[in-house]
Write a protein that binds this DNA or RNA. Sequence first.
DNA 1: AATCCATGCAACCGCCGCACG
DNA 2: GCGTGCGGCGGTTGCATGGAT
Length: 282
Amino acid sequence: MGRPPCCDNGGASVKKGPWTPEEDIILVSYIQQHGPGNWRSVPENTGLMRCSKSCRLRWTNYLRPGIKRGNFTQHEEGIIIHLQALLGNKWAAIASYLPQRTDNDIKNYWNTHLKKKVKRLQQQTHPADHFFQHTSTATNAAEQTISMNYYNPSSSNLDSAMQAAMGYPETTTGNVAPAAMAVSKLFQSWMPKAPSPEMADYKGMVAMQEFQTDREDGATASMTSGHRFSSSEILAGRDEAATATTFSVLENWLLDDMAPGQAAMDGLMDISAGCCANPIMF
DNA sequence: AATCCATGCAACCGCCGCACG
DNA sequence: GCGTGCGGCGGTTGCATGGAT
C-alpha cells in the first residue's frame, strides 16, 4: 500500500497555478493568527483548494515578511558564487546566509545569470595564467570571485590543506572533487551557527515592525505589515539571535560590509592562508 | 503587425530525512 | 525495527514578457 498523495485535500480537486491576491490574503491572515507550520492543516482550515506544500512554498518564497525582491547586489552575487563553489547547489544553506533572499530566488538567479557568467569566464580563462591574470584584471568582484573559485587551481594550497585535514589521500591532490567535498563537510559543521530560517523570520518580524513593505500587492502588504508581533515573539527571536551571533571568520567575511570585491578577495586569501598554516583551526 | 525566440520567475514534482506511533 | 506522515529541498517545468527578425 503506497502512501496517499500528499495533496489530495480530502478528495477535493487541488487548485494549481498562480496564486490570486484573494488566496494570498487568506493564507497570510491565517498565518498571522496561527503562525507558520502545520501546513497540512492550512488548506483544511482556510478552505484554500491548495496543496499544503503549495501553501508553504507560497509563504516562504513570496509572502513571508522581510523578503527582499528585485536585483541582486554585487555583494550578494559574490556571496552566492563563493558559497556555491563551496557547497554546491545547496540553495537552502546558501539562502541561510542571505536571510532576505529565498532559496528559490537564489536558485533562479544562479540558473539564469550566474551559471552563464561562470561558464563564460571558465571558457575565457587560460589554465596556465588564470590566477594572477584574472585577479588583477577582472572587471568586478563577481568575476574575480568566479575566477578564484571556479578555475581549479590544481594542487592549490587550499585544496591540499583541505585534503590533509579531511584525510584524503595525497594522490587526490589536483582533483577538485574531494577537496570540494571536504570544504563542504567543514562548512556543514558550521551550519548551526549560520542564521537559521527561524532567525530569518525573526529578522523579518523586526523589519516588519519598522517598515512598510514595498510589495506591489497593496492588499497583501497592508495585511502583513499591519501585524505587530508580541514582545514574547520578539524576545524568543532575540534569544535565538544571541546564540547565533558568534560568527566564524568566514561568516564575517561573507557578511562584511566592506567593498564586495575587496572583501571577497581578502577573505579568500585569509582563509587560504589560515587554512594552510593551521588546518585544524580552519 | 505578426511571429519567433530568449529570458525570468513562480510554481510544481519527486525524493529524502526526520519524528512519531 | 518498521511503516507512515509531514516538512524541506533541489531539479524542472510552464507561462508571461520583452526583444529581435
